[in-house]
Design a protein around this nucleic acid. Structure first.
Length: 264
DNA sequence: AACTCGGTCAACCGCCCAAAA
DNA sequence: ATTTTGGGCGGTTGACCGAGT
């Protein structure tokens, strides 16, 4: 039963790839194409496991990989996408041509993450000094949303789950709502409880990310959601939507008026 | 010159899940 | 229906390098 193992790990090379190994892999893929990584070591005569071949090709040898420093535009995009998607490096990389998930992850961990953190700290400090904002712990909004996203390429997000995420404090683990127009995701969640909620209306995040839905479609979703709210809940949802969309969505005044009447 | 330290990045690890058998 | 694997992912490691002392 099951599949045969792709390769034995014994007797395989590890560590840095040599130029000769690189050339063997390039030649093989030029002739046979990508995929079937498990077969490559045997067929190409490489003493590497299939996983290692795949990684080497995708992160280094692929012809469409962009070399050189990350530009300012790319950096801005990475920051925006990270804000939207969290540590979902492959998704971020998918939207930055020529850059690999590994490269972006490394860049974030070594440079960008610290930079963003420092800027945020400075911004908070400035605003605090100007009296624009209350200290975080005292701000009622600070508990509204946590925006850490996690791996959810296959997770299903339900309307009910979304409600649960936003409204029920016990279930608010991670939720986000962003504009597809801004190049981000619509909604993601990792709440186990929320996942277990049944609903007829399900959204596959992977599909949504790939489908590039329009803002009006997105807004329709919000309207449907809103209409299913109990009295008194919609304002809370609206607030959270507003908070989460503040920097990314360009909702019109009319759109928002109905939602944020009392709560902000 | 020798050493330490911190940053960078390629490569590996371990997990998850869809697909194959 | 069940077991097993391959592929894909994010997290982590460790080699390497340059700056500072």
């Amino acid at each position: 039963m099951g599949r045969k193992p792709c390769c034995s790990k014994e007797g395989l090379n590890r560590g840095a790839w040599s130029a000769i190994e690189d050339q063997i892999l390039i030649d093989y893929i030029k002739t046979n194409g990508e995929g079937k990584w498990g077969n490559i070591p045997k067929k190409a005569g490489l003493k590497r496991c299939g996983k290692s071949c795949r990684l080497r090709w995708l992160n280094y040898l692929r012809p469409d990989i962009k070399r050189g420093n990350i530009s300012q535009e790319e950096e801005d995009l990475i920051i925006r996408l990270h804000k939207l998607l969290g540590n979902r490096w492959s998704l971020i990389a998918g939207r930055i041509p020529g850059r690999t998930d590994n490269e972006i992850k490394n860049y974030w961990n070594s440079t960008l993450g610290k930079k963003v953190k420092a800027e945020q700290a400075k911004q908070s400090k400035d605003e605090l000094e100007k009296g624009k904002i209350q200290p975080l712990a005292e701000t009622p909004q600070s508990t509204a949303l946590r925006t850490k996203a996690s791996k959810c390429s296959t997770c299903l997000v339900t309307q009910e789950a979304y409600k649960a995420e936003i409204i029920n404090a016990d279930l608010v683990h991670e939720a986000r709502l962003e504009s597809p127009k801004s190049g981000g995701t619509v909604l993601s969640t990792t709440s186990e409880e929320a996942h277990s909620v049944n609903s007829a209306l399900e959204f596959d995040i992977g599909e949504l990310l790939a489908s590039d839905i329009s803002e009006s479609e997105f807004w329709n979703y919000c309207q449907v959601n809103k209409n299913s709210m109990e009295e008194g809940e919609s304002s809370g949802v609206a607030r959270n939507m507003w908070l989460s969309s503040d920097q990314h969505l360009q909702f019109s005044e009319e759109m928002l008026t109905d939602w944020i009447r009392d709560d902000i």
